[in-house]
Design a protein around this nucleic acid. Structure first.
Lengths: 259, 259
DNA sequence: CGATAAGTTGAACTGGCTCAAGTCATGTGG
DNA sequence: CCACATGACTTGAGCCAGTTCAACTTATCG
């Protein structure tokens, strides 16, 4: 019924030959398998060891735990080690609006940089762990290590293009496009992590997906049903199988790129 | 009929006592009235003079001219001096999707940082001018001037929160909310520039506004008509008057903040 | 095992879209 | 400088994708 969720992380680790398992809380940036997705890209060994010194490694969280809350003072950004997280804002009437989905290797919390206050909340969607990177120390280090500065500029730039892709996705209506684009996005992000791009578990509920994509949970459900009926995907609750990627890309009109 | 458009810039300049008019092409960052909105905030006199050295000042553009095109190599970011600009992407089928509206003092082009390639195009919506800031030189300078690095991190962070606000706006449907939020956003940005927050000229056509807000141009027009009928705004083509800000905020459900 | 949350499916409703016809503004060439 | 052409805007009417409300089934977890 849910064959590869438990495997997800374990599988990941068993294949790690040179690099240590990123779920081992004591692994340093230089050894972490996620290093190639995360901050350290483009740093040399010595630079990484400087980075290592400021990173607070391997705190664990369970489903529903907050990384930070809307309005909290901004101190750190967070690199996801394992599990998945959503970011959201609570609007005036208390309705929660999902603004992002983050997977291992991705970086969270940059919404606090401009005002020293987080613009939204971040919570774990399942058991997971993360590294905390104190921003002020990162700033100081960046001033001394140009390649780190450059890397972080590029990381923030990535967040900007990601948000803008999402913007165009939400503007050009069509529920099916949005759902298809989300599936393709998760698929390619899994691929980057050396996991199957064809089978994965959705970390969000239908309601969360709907909130993220600007449609109702019922519509999400109906779209899944329709895509199943066309044999484009197989849906077993949160377990997803992509059966016909190119058909799915056609539905998505290839938005939300493959990055 | 259009009393304050021509005044817009002139008025701006006539009030400038200590700071020189930003429409004067030779004005340096230290003297520019827009400095307090633009990059130089938080820099001291000497730091500003370093910045001045790398800024290519005061090029002019007329309506429809491109600042850069989607796919162009990324070299610089651009600070708007006068006029207004839109950013957009052309989707697979050639339909143009507006992703941003930029006014004087604001900074454009950060969508290119992550891939060294612009993710969208930017064109002038009216006659205007800008400063070009070569990014590589800015990076080098940032490594030497911590307050400039910090300033630029914060600027990028601002772009992120702005995009995310837009995201939540587009998810929570309701055409009236979107239009109201846009009007309030322009209003507060004008206020920051010491222009009237109550009277302004919309720089975009109905079609562009619609594309930006994810609704059709007809719907934009109808919303304007409805808001006029309720005496919340007065609309004379592109000339807008906000008659009842608090009513407008109620319609917008106060999204897209006042920043 | 039972309670509560998550997901599916149906039916009626509706906000915004599409298509269409018209007015108004802008600017270009005679 | 006017006339006309083109693009921008408005308004109406019908339609449809997605919403809402509701009833039901299926998972999850103490």
């Amino acid at each position: 019924m849910k064959p590869n969720y438990q495997l997800d992380v374990a599988d990941d680790c068993s294949r790690a030959v040179k690099r240590a398992c990123h779920t081992n809380p004591s692994v340093s940036c230089g050894d972490c398998r996620l290093g190639e997705l995360c901050l350290p890209i483009a740093l040399d060994a010595q630079e990484i060891s400087h980075l290592d010194e400021i990173v607070k490694r391997g705190r664990n969280l369970k489903k529903g735990d907050y990384l930070y809350r809307e309005g909290d003072e901004f101190n750190s950004i967070y690199a996801i080690r394992a599990g998945s997280f959503k970011t959201f804002k609570s609007s005036w009437d208390g309705v929660e609006q999902v603004t992002g989905l983050y997977l291992p290797g991705e970086i969270l919390g940059m919404d606090g940089i401009s005002n020293n206050r987080h613009g939204g909340s971040a919570v774990a969607l399942e058991t997971g762990s993360f590294c905390e990177i104190p921003f002020h120390q990162l700033e100081e280090l960046s001033a001394r290590i140009p390649s780190l500065q450059g890397r972080f500029f590029r990381l923030m730039g990535q967040e900007i293009v990601k948000d803008q892709q999402m913007l165009t996705l939400l503007s050009s209506n069509a529920a099916e496009e949005r759902v298809a684009a989300l599936l393709l996005s998760i698929s390619s992000r899994n691929h980057r992590r050396k996991l199957s791009p064809f089978n994965f578990r959705l970390p969000m509920t239908r309601a969360e997906i709907g909130s993220y994509l600007g449609i109702t949970l019922e519509t999400v459900s109906r779209v899944f049903s329709r895509l199943s009926k066309q044999n484009i995907v197989a849906v077993d609750n949160k377990e997803i199988q992509l059966l016909d990627i190119s058909a799915l890309k056609a539905v998505a009109k290839v938005k939300m790129g493959c990055s």
